[in-house]
Amino acid sequence: MPRRPSTGTQSDTPALHVVPSFYGVYLLQSEPKPSSFYIGSTPDPPRRLRQHNGDLKAGGAYRTKRAGFRPWRMLLVVYDFPSKVSALQFEHSFQHCHETRHIKQEERISKNKLSGRTLHHKVANVALLLRSSYFRHLPLKVLVFEEAVYNSFMNNKFVTCSHVDLLNTNFNEYFSVMEKDLDSTVDSWKTRHTNENEIWSMAKEAVILGSPRCALCLEPIEQVPETSSPISKRSDLQRYLQSESLPLVTMCYNPQCRDVFHLSCLGHRFTNSDGFQSLIPATVNRCCSCNAKLEWRTLAKIATKLRYYVLKDSLQLPSQVLENDDNYESQNVNDS
């Protein structure tokens, strides 16, 4: 399976932003040469690891191809990036810890390009980045696949103390594609996807098929736009979005609640109105109606995905590959 060409990053292709279901930055370690590390980003870690190890012929894995370094082990994945761009930014910062703007000068533990080559340094840098002014606003989580890495996080050798949403697990366990693990209660790659699929079908049903009102501003939500001319330029799309009042709509994904909201209404609700804090709400909030815990990232994902779903046909947007969304697409087709 070839690595997909990254679409939507071209400056002129109209692309609606959709929060990806998974995007992660990972750290590899060479098993024969434990001092060698590799940092990359992917929406699909198992596939990417196979590429690195040469199990998949297709797909670039140039840096890890050198003889004597394979096989590679995945030590950790920082994931739940809300956009591919932010994941790439994290990847770049992680690769250039000694010069990234996201780590303050005085906090740096990697002073130059050659320093910071131990596992402890890598872990500490991840911790530093996660608490940086930028990335701490993102709903990031960390998967740790090795006990040593976990211990390193816990030991906190460089006193980069920060709250990291850690999940210590086993790589193969987490990304297991075995059918037998399907019903395991442990959070895993598979359960994650099934959950998201459920939420997606729920949202479609609630928002598109129904005629809801925003539970906060009580405005009726009309998701059916007037058919307009196809849009082939990014600027046109931006103008369209600015001119047409097409608010993002999301939904409480608690199956018992399913209240529909304007994303901006929720955003204002979840943030301080004085503007002194970031406009992005906290990672987890309580639903205004049912008080259920809601991840903001999921809410944003629902909203952006709904918008994409509604607009892509009416605007005849070029087909946009949503990262790792094959399942959804096929499911959606099946569903409809």
Partner: peptide, 21 residues
């Protein structure tokens, strides 16, 4: 003041809270 300015505009506010680059 920038946040208030941006937050008052639906388009930009939605962009930000939906994590759009």
């Amino acid at each position: 003041s920038l946040n208030r300015l941006v937050g008052s505009n639906q388009y930009w506010h939605e962009k930000i809270i939906s994590f759009e680059p």
